[in-house]
Write a protein that binds this DNA or RNA. Structure first.
Length: 321
DNA sequence: ATCGGCTGTTAGACGTAGAC
DNA sequence: GTCTACGTCTAACAGCCGAT
């Protein structure tokens, strides 16, 4: 895009990333320098100055009526990003507060960008961008993928896809990795990794990702659920598979069927798999004077099983650590 | 805030095998 | 020989973590 001469009076103040506005002293210095030959960048749709507000002030100080400018055609959000980039690469450096505020705005306008991409744009560390994103979280849409500096999309956490793949691999052992990858919605290499983990007897989701998924569930209001159990429930829901079906699978597993302890575990789990109708009958059968005791025992049972589930999760995590 | 190391994910390139 | 499907490997990049 060739630079053109534009009247200064038609230009509007920039949507500057500088929280304290332009520096007058810097404008005075610029007015006497050769930097005035560099064209300013202007958002065509709004005529706002994207980059070069100090040069515009300097030109005014010199009594110039026109200035050399280049036009940018794009959205206001993209214009702001361009302005931040320009201020990072040349001119009066942005303060830390300016850069942090700019990162916050870019996270809001470009939530799909990776931390590193935003870090490169704003001149901050990726870790700082990550922290700002976490602090700003909740308002924006929770995207499952981020666009990297290479323009490729990468999932933030593909634990669900891995679990889906592990189920599909068990159900369709002869299916190709590509088919599993397509059905599970993850990449070929990830499916391969899941398969290798299953062969080695490991959990399909790497420990780090499981910890992440767990911490994400802890962040949500209400009681946190063990992530594996939650994922299994989600899978079952997706497949229309209920507790009965899960129990059937356990009953068919030889490693449980052929041991006394395994059979005891299945029996105990079967006792708790009561349907809506059955639960109602049990509720009706509890006499008024026993309700408190039954409730207390039920709570104790629930806590005991919760503890058992947590213990299983912890054991599972330490095995794969 | 930065850096380096680690692990995980992706797209794409490559070689192989089977069907036509 | 060509096409298709498949499995494997690699470069590039992501986020996380610990050290500085």
């Amino acid at each position: 895009m060739q630079p053109v001469v534009v009247p200064i009076e038609v230009l509007r103040p920039s949507d500057s990333p500088r929280l304290d506005g332009e520096n007058r002293e810097h404008a005075k210095v610029l007015a006497e320098s050769e930097a005035m030959q560099v064209p300013v960048l202007v958002h065509r749709a709004t005529m706002r100055v994207i980059d070069g507000m100090h040069r515009v002030h300097a030109a005014s100080l010199r009594g110039d009526e026109t200035i050399l400018a280049r036009f940018f055609d794009g959205t206001a959000a993209d214009a702001f990003v361009l302005g931040v980039k320009a201020n990072i690469t040349h001119g009066l450096p942005l303060s830390l507060a300016d850069r942090r505020a700019a990162a916050m705005r870019i996270i809001a306008s470009h939530p799909q960008w990776s931390d590193r991409m935003i870090a490169t744009t704003t001149g901050l560390a990726a870790k700082t961008v990550s922290m700002i994103r976490r602090c700003a979280g909740g308002d924006g849409p929770a995207l499952s993928v981020r666009i990297g500096r290479d323009g490729r999309a990468r999932p933030v956490n593909c634990a669900d896809g891995r679990l889906r793949a592990s189920v599909l691999l068990r159900e369709q052992p002869t299916a190709s990795l590509r088919r599993i990858a397509t059905e599970a919605g993850i990449s070929l290499s990830t499916v391969r990794d899941v398969r290798e983990r299953l062969i080695r007897g490991e959990h399909p989701v790497p420990p780090r990702q499981r910890r992440k998924a767990l911490s994400e569930s802890d962040d949500r209001p209400g009681r946190a659920q063990p992530e594996v159990a939650a994922a299994a429930r989600k899978l079952c829901a997706e497949k229309g598979e209920g507790q009965e079906s899960l129990l059937l699978r356990l009953k068919q597993d030889p490693s449980l069927r052929f041991s006394e302890t395994g059979r005891t575990l299945i029996r105990l789990l079967s006792l708790h798999a009561v349907g809506e109708q059955e639960r109602k009958q049990l509720l009706d059968a509890v006499p008024q004077h026993c309700r408190n005791i039954v409730a207390e025992l039920a709570h104790a049972c629930a806590e005991s099983w919760q503890e058992f589930a947590s213990w299983l999760d912890e054991q599972d995590a330490s095995v794969n650590h």
